[in-house]
């Protein structure tokens, strides 16, 4: 049985903000199915008594001194922006017409 269907790939693409063409969905569904089938092996040894590790280092709450320091100027921060208006990032409409 396949672990992942074409519809699921379409859902993942939506969640991932990837506008995939219909032809791509089949291609990725087949590949992701093989990969997920192979990596699912981890469940064989992951018993309840084993604590998970998210990281190799046991560090938590790392702070540096709270000092005022130089940061980017607006010009530097905006220099690579695709669109700029009034010293701000110009972005496409994010609210519906009714808003």
């Amino acid at each position: 049985m396949s672990a992942i269907t074409r519809d699921e790939v379409a859902h993942l693409a939506r969640l991932s903000r990837l506008a995939l063409a219909d032809t791509e969905l089949d291609h990725y569904a087949a590949q992701l199915d093989v990969i997920i089938g192979a990596v699912a092996r981890v469940a064989e040894v992951a018993t309840d008594d084993i604590p998970p590790s998210s990281h190799a280092l046991p560090l938590t709450n790392v702070y540096r001194p709270d000092e005022v320091r130089r940061c980017l100027t607006p010009e530097q921060a905006l220099a690579a922006a695709p669109a700029v208006q009034d010293s701000r990032f110009r972005v496409p409409r994010i609210l519906g017409e009714e808003a």
Partner: peptide, 27 residues
Amino acid sequence: KRRIMLGTYALSSGYYDAYYGSAQKVR
């Protein structure tokens, strides 16, 4: 794209424990 979708899948509710959670235990 493959890896972003694979990661999105592994972190999805319903799959998280079996995939990402198990992988962290293997770690």
